[in-house]
Design a protein around this nucleic acid. Structure first.
Lengths: 239, 239
DNA sequence: TATAACTAGTTGTCTATACCAGTCAGAAAA
DNA sequence: TTTTCTGACTGGTATAGACAACTAGTTATA
């Protein structure tokens, strides 16, 4: 259950164990979980370690504490879904599609004024330009161009083809923090209509996303052209 | 500085002290703050107490930790802007436009199957249908159709014309909690192109929003058609 | 000169313990 | 029977210390 020799921190293992019980429905909303002292005894760890695990779950909204009473499973929150800063892959999976990508081009270019500003780097600095077609069940869904400052991490074509960009980012020790997006309706241009296999003049959804790391540095600028006939952008917002 | 006799927890006092330095600009973005051991010594508390204070500030986005290096002041927080569940009026104001509305029609209709489902009411129940043109600096920006269950609150044409729908909702003692939205690109149909003063076939952004109250009841279903050439939907998301 | 080992500093994890502050049920007192 | 108190539970705060993992600069070594 809990492996004291594992390189994973004990509190993290406990955290995952509790999270699983909740997500598997074993502990439903309102269930009072074991007390901190009970956990400590069962897992043979100190109470403070249990508290660290529970703290994280409280912060993530899985649990709520009540002094003198106990710790309870929260109502399943929209917030998990909320504000989903998701990748194309996650997004499509959650819709029940099989996501895939086709790399169109991968090259290193010099930042023009607009890119330099968006990525907060000096002009003419090197950046990667990644062009991909995004597929859902083998049907073209979007044409995506990603710009990443080359100084931030070293990328090769194989990284893009085999893994996701975001896993490379995490390998490099960075963490994604937030993004600002803009969405607008437009009309497919020649090149886009061909790649997306739609007629010229068909409606498309243009999405531009700027992603930031926890240290405040911009990670990427992504320009996407989604097929208007196949893609709906879904979002939940809380007051 | 820190009052050990105060009923306020020590970690909370330390938390506030650090937060103040950041908010007053004394510690700017990127500043490395004192190490946990230094704080502990200065304040004459244990390191774990300092950690609790810093933990909270990290969770709130004020600080970021880097193992082996130190703890640093984060880039400006964006959470306030985040999560904007805003009305058209607020949205336009924040962009520097002068918002206005023109009421096209106001009537009571019976819920068809789709509306009944979206508003979680029995079929054929009465609902208000409000059609409005939304203007920014007197230029048509969107054509909006709102559906509200009549049982929820009593509405008159004057309410819509003079005040906002949301203020009526609050007067009735309800509180808006969250909304789910979908956005997609499309093409202006005849009626829409006329009202929005654009050519037929011009790109438009279709936004459908379902708003829920704190008690979980749906308040409204809003279907909007925004001009693709004038409107960009902006959103910030946090990981 | 280049490389490896060391060192002092940082945050990260974990322990064992203590006492405080609410909650609630059952025992004792009215 | 009703009220009050007590005790055993809950999470909340705080301590002092230990060692691990990582960073960056310095020193010793090949």
């Amino acid at each position: 259950m809990i492996d004291k020799k594992s390189p994973m921190p004990l509190y993290f293992q406990i955290e995952e164990a509790i999270k699983q019980k909740i997500e598997k429905g074993e502990w439903i909303t309102g269930t009072m979980i074991s007390s901190e002292r009970e956990f400590a005894e069962n897992y043979e760890v100190s109470r403070m370690t249990v508290r660290q695990a529970i703290n994280n779950l409280v912060n993530d909204g899985y649990l709520t504490r009540q002094k003198g009473k106990g710790t309870f499973v929260s109502a399943k929150k929209i917030e998990q879904k909320l504000l989903g800063l998701t990748s194309f892959t996650e997004d499509m999976r959650s819709r029940g599609y099989r996501p895939a990508s086709k790399l169109i081009s991968f090259q290193t270019i010099s930042a023009n004024q607009r890119l330099a500003k968006a990525l907060e780097i000096p002009e003419n600095q090197k950046i990667y330009e990644i062009k991909r077609v995004r597929l859902a069940n083998d049907i073209p869904m979007a044409f995506e161009t990603t710009f990443v400052p080359a100084q931030l991490l070293y990328l090769q074509e194989s990284h893009i083809k085999e893994g996701s960009l975001y896993s490379e980012v995490e390998n490099a020790g960075f963490k994604i923090d937030y993004a600002t997006q803009s969405l607008e309706a437009s009309i497919a241009r020649d090149a886009e209509s061909e790649i997306l296999e739609i007629t010229k003049g068909a409606p498309v959804l243009l999405i531009e996303r700027q992603t930031f790391l926890t240290n405040g540095m911009p990670l990427e600028l992504v320009h996407s052209v989604y097929r208007g006939d196949r893609y709906k952008f879904m979002i939940d917002m809380k007051r």
